[in-house]
C-alpha cells in the first residue's frame, strides 16, 4: 500500500494524520515535562516521520522516526505538528 501523499505541504497535528503518511516534524509544543519526554525520545523538529498504524479503538498510534519505531497516545501526539514532506523516511 502506498500512501496518498497530499500534493502540497499540509501542516496538522500528528494525531490527525491518516495511515502511512510521510512527513516531517515541524514543532513540538510546550515547555513542560511532557514536551521534554517527547523530545528526549527523539521526537524533534526536522525529523522525518511516518504514521504506521493505530491500535484497536484508535489509540495509541505507532510512528516511525528515522531509526526506530515508537508508540504514543493521541493526547501526546496532539502536541506534535507534522508537515507532509517528499522525503522518504528510511
Amino acid at each position: 500500500m502506498t500512501s496518498q501523499q497530499p500534493p502540497f505541504a499540509v501542516e496538522k497535528s500528528l494525531d490527525k494524520w491518516p495511515l502511512q503518511i510521510q512527513g516531517e516534524i515541524v514543532s513540538v509544543e510546550g515547555t513542560d515535562s511532557v514536551a521534554c519526554r517527547l523530545l528526549e525520545m527523539g521526537i524533534l523538529e526536522g525529523e522525518p516521520i511516518r504514521i504506521l498504524g493505530y491500535a484497536p479503538l484508535g489509540d495509541p498510534m505507532e510512528i516511525r522516526l528515522r531509526d526506530f519505531q515508537l508508540s504514543l497516545r493521541l493526547s501526546e501526539a496532539q502536541r506534535v505538528t507534522v508537515r507532509t514532506a517528499p522525503l522518504p523516511v528510511d
Binding site: 525520545m41 526506530f68 515508537l70 508508540s71 504514543l72
Partner: peptide, 11 residues
C-alpha cells in the same frame, strides 16, 4: 489524572 505513555517498539 492520566499519565503519559510512550513505548519504544523494538525491531
Amino acid at each position: 489524572e492520566k499519565p503519559i505513555f510512550m513505548l519504544e517498539m523494538p525491531p
